[in-house]
Write a protein that binds this DNA or RNA. Structure first.
Length: 101
DNA sequence: TATCTGACGATAG
DNA sequence: CCTATCGCCAGAT
């Protein structure tokens, strides 16, 4: 069957598996998808993704939110328990223990 | 098939 | 804080 590349499917699967209140970085998602260097490709996939995919749970490595959708992104994150500020994530509940930095 | 673009990451200045 | 550069990958034209 035609598949939109294993990557896009992998990314969709990973992002859809992110628990609420948790945020992962593009690099983390890319690594989970099978390519730790495909952070850029992940962003591309998310931009092409539609509803059903919690793209807002994916943020940049430096905590930066999506350019152009900072309001939307921040609103959704805060709705799940993530605090944001100035287009940037504040409190992050990473899927990895340890806390934030 | 080639080229450009982009919701990236890291380093350097 | 900012911009600039390199490296990486997938999608669109």
């Amino acid at each position: 069957m035609s598949r939109p590349s294993d990557f896009s499917t992998r990314v969709h699967r990973v992002v859809a598996g992110i628990p609420a209140g948790t945020v992962l970085t593009y690099g983390e998602v890319a690594a989970e998808a099978g390519s730790p260097r495909a952070a850029r490709a992940v962003g591309h996939v998310l931009s092409a993704a539609g509803e059903g995919l919690p793209w807002w749970r994916v943020v940049a490595a430096d905590g930066r939110l999506v350019p152009g959708l900072e309001e939307e992104h921040a609103a959704r994150l805060q709705d799940e328990g993530v605090t944001c500020g100035h287009g940037r994530v504040r409190t992050v509940r990473r899927h990895r223990a340890g806390g934030d930095r």
